[in-house]
Amino acid sequence: MADFNRTPAGTSTFILMGIPGLEAAHIWISIPFSLCYVIGFLGNLTVVFVVGKEQALHKPMYLLLCMLALTDIGMSTSVMPRALCLFWFNVKGVTVEGCLTQTFFIHTLAVMQSAVLVTMAFDRYVAICNPLRYTTILSNARVATLGLVGLIRAILFILPMPLLLSRLPFCASHVIPHTYCEHMAVVKLSCGDTTVNRMYGLVIAFVVTGLDMTLILLSYAVIFRAVLRTSSKKGHHRALSTCTAHLCVMLMFYTPSLFSYLTHRFGQGIPPHVHIFSANLYLLVPPMLNPIIYGVKTKELRDKVGKYTCRVCSCGATGIKHV
């Protein structure tokens, strides 16, 4: 493929290098990356479409799945189109304003997704521990309110990040050894005092990720305690089955995000390409697998998706027949 190097020079531009040491393999790396992105995008779009169209799925649990799908689409789309331009066409230059905007959206959507996962854990807690009060505690309107609160929290927490970055002097290298404008990758380029930026990043990590993970763990500790007290084996299986999908999604989100965060600050011995791969997979793999996991584990959603799939296939077969 031709190498269209459109990297502008100047103090108002950052240069994204992609994956250092593996530049020659960018085209090959782009193949699994683009496949993950397309599968995740279409899968999450299908979830949003089916839940929106089916009145029977207008329930708190499925509204939360829609929120999760939308944040997944937003997170992967805020990174992958730009990264694929770098891999395919060697378009490396990004303006400072564009870089700060990308940083804001990536981290805002990550914090929003964490809030959705907390709400989903609370939803499972109420459904299993207080089933008779489920409809009064978690109505559709209340779920929508919780989603709005999560979005406002994400914006308020993350908005200072690009504002603090915009005040830093970048008087030396403008080369970011990454595929996107990750907060700490940009901070490391500054030749000024970055103490406030680093401290604010730590506060966000501990306050948001730490608090949210604690709430989720407490919810599931109470859930498992309630399940173990139930004498019915069928009840055990049903309750644990409904929680399995949520636990898988939470592990896929928090594990790579914590690994990426810790290696950026404390993993000096880890090769840069390992860190950058993990930072990209954290934004690609969960959005790809989430709709698959929920499609497999949630019978009602699986049946509705199957209905639309059969309808599309039958329409396609009819069209071919007429031709």
Rank of each mutant, 00 (worst) to 15 (best):
A2G: 05
P8E: 05
S12K: 01
T13M: 02
F14K: 13
L16D: 02
M17D: 13
M17V: 04
G21E: 09
A24H: 12
S30V: 02
F49P: 10
K53R: 14
K53T: 09
K53Y: 13
L57D: 03
K59A: 06
M61L: 08
M61V: 11
Y62Q: 02
L64P: 05
L68T: 08
A69W: 08
D72C: 15
M75E: 14
V79L: 13
V79M: 14
M80Y: 07
R82N: 04
L86G: 11
N90A: 04
T101G: 04
T103S: 10
A115V: 09
V116G: 04
L117E: 08
V118N: 06
A121L: 09
F122Y: 12
D123W: 01
N130G: 01
I137Q: 05
N140M: 03
V143C: 02
V149K: 03
L151N: 09
I152L: 14
R167A: 06
V175F: 09
Y180T: 03
C181F: 08
E182G: 10
A185T: 10
G201W: 00
L202Y: 13
V208G: 08
D212N: 15
L215T: 04
L217M: 15
L217N: 10
S219R: 12
Y220P: 07
Y220C: 06
I223R: 08
R225Y: 00
K233R: 06
K234D: 04
G235V: 06
H236Y: 04
H236A: 03
S241V: 00
S241I: 01
T242Q: 14
H246V: 15
M250D: 12
M250Q: 12
F253M: 10
S260I: 07
F266I: 01
S278Y: 07
P286L: 09
M288N: 07
N290F: 06
L301D: 11
K307Q: 15
C310P: 01
V312D: 09
A317P: 03
T318A: 10
T318E: 06
H322N: 07
